[in-house]
Amino acid sequence: MTHTPKIGALAVVLHQGQVLLVQRSKQPDAGLWGFPGGHVEWGETALQAAQRELLEETSVTAHPSHYLDNLDLLRWNDEGQVVSHYLLVGVACAYQSGEPIAGDDALDARWFSIEQIRNGDLLMSDRVVDLLEHALSVS
């Protein structure tokens, strides 16, 4: 059996000193806060997927401007075997309109101050702070 990593896109939206995050409703990371995002569909670019997932999960519209970084997310079982493998593509998205309303795979969607994320005040998915810092450094 051939295993292939799954590709996901993450929408990184910064606006007025805040960042938009969603609380995940499904595994992996159910209950944790992270960037809106999901699977890249067949025939769709990661930029398009980030924009689509953002709208589906938050009702916020933003323009995907450029790729930020690629994050490998591997999870292992107790025997040391890989049980999931995602390649997550961070996409910088320029806010256009809308107020966050949780939808699709999100329990909640909100704007958070950058300092709140840096301080680790939320239970977050791995690498949220890293990707945020990278987005800030290139914006």
Score class of each variant (00 low, 15 high):
V12R: 03
V129I: 14
T2D: 08
H66T: 05
R118P: 00
S65V: 15
S113T: 10
L20H: 04
S65H: 08
D78P: 04
T61F: 13
E44P: 01
A50C: 08
N119G: 11
G43E: 12
Q18Y: 00
Q96D: 13
L20C: 07
G8E: 14
L107I: 12
A46P: 12
Q27R: 13
N70Y: 15
P100M: 13
S59K: 13
E44M: 12
D69W: 04
S65N: 08
V12F: 14
R75P: 02
L132F: 02
S125P: 00
L136V: 11
G80Q: 02
S84T: 07
Q81H: 11
L136I: 11
D29A: 15
L88C: 05
D108S: 14
L132V: 01
L47H: 09
W33N: 02
L54H: 03
D104I: 02
Q51V: 11
E44H: 05
L14Y: 07
E57W: 04
Q18M: 05
Q18V: 00
A102C: 02
E44Y: 10
R52M: 02
R118W: 11
S84L: 09
G38Q: 07
W76V: 00
D72M: 15
V40I: 15
L68G: 06
V138Y: 10
L20A: 01
W42L: 12
K26L: 08
W42P: 01
P64E: 09
G80W: 04
A106L: 09
M124Y: 03
A106D: 01
G120C: 04
V128I: 10
V129A: 06
R110T: 05
T2Q: 08
L132K: 03
W42R: 03
Y95G: 05
P100F: 14
E57D: 02
H134K: 05
A9Q: 07
V13L: 08
D104T: 06
L21S: 09
S137R: 01
Q18R: 03
L47M: 15
E56Q: 13
M124T: 14
S139A: 12
L55R: 02
H134D: 08
P36G: 12
N70G: 15
E57Y: 05
P36A: 10
M1V: 08
D78L: 14
Q116N: 04
V22S: 05
T45Y: 05
G37L: 13
N77V: 00
L32R: 09
L55M: 07
L131Q: 08
P28C: 12
A50S: 06
